[in-house]
């Protein structure tokens, strides 16, 4: 499994079906508060978006049936999207990212952020690559799973 470095360009000519790449992410309370704070600033108001504590309050999360506070889906999606933009580097581009939220991501989950090359198509000057992308937790579950299509430069 290859780790990703956005400063090292991935070229279409160098990849193959089945190639995998990954990053790691353990979302904690500080990160979630930072993410929600960013949203609050953008709104011109503070606080979380749901008002029921699911993202930041252990007791509020328990009342909703979660063992711990959960991570906002958009935050997890952003991390998965970042894996893709890291992999395509500065010379590639992302056409789309399509993700299903299958189960919640909990605070302090040790996550693998992973990508897998599932299809390729040669083009002029660039190649189109289809990826499976997902988050996998230490319990072997994939709370986010989806696909992405990207363009990679040719050598």
């Amino acid at each position: 499994m290859k780790t990703v470095d956005p400063t090292t360009q991935t070229y279409f000519d160098d990849i193959d079906l089945g190639d995998e790449f990954e990053d790691e992410w353990t979302p904690d309370m500080e990160q979630v508060l930072g993410y929600l704070g960013l949203e609050g600033d953008a709104l011109g108001e503070g606080g979380g978006p749901t008002g029921d504590g699911r993202f930041t309050d252990p007791e509020g999360a328990r009342k909703l049936g979660f063992p711990k506070p959960i991570v906002p889906g958009a935050f997890s999606l952003s991390k998965l999207t970042k894996l893709v933009t890291d992999w395509v580097g500065t010379g590639g581009s992302v056409d789309f990212v399509d993700v299903n939220f299958r189960r919640p991501v909990l605070h302090d989950d040790a996550l693998k952020v992973q990508g897998l090359v599932t299809d390729t198509e040669e083009g002029d000057g660039a190649g189109t690559v289809k990826l499976d992308i997902y988050l996998e937790n230490e319990r072997g579950e994939r709370p986010l799973q989806g696909t992405a299509v990207v363009q990679l430069p040719r050598r």
């Binding site: 930072g34 958009a74 999606l77 970042k82 933009t85």
Partner: peptide
């Protein structure tokens, strides 16, 4: 916050795609 290191977004003024959802 995202730990972004892609120079497109940290140096060259492009906006990370996921930012649009924020």
């Amino acid at each position: 916050l995202m730990g972004e290191t892609n120079p497109l977004y940290t140096e060259q003024g492009f906006v990370p795609p996921s930012y649009l959802q924020r």
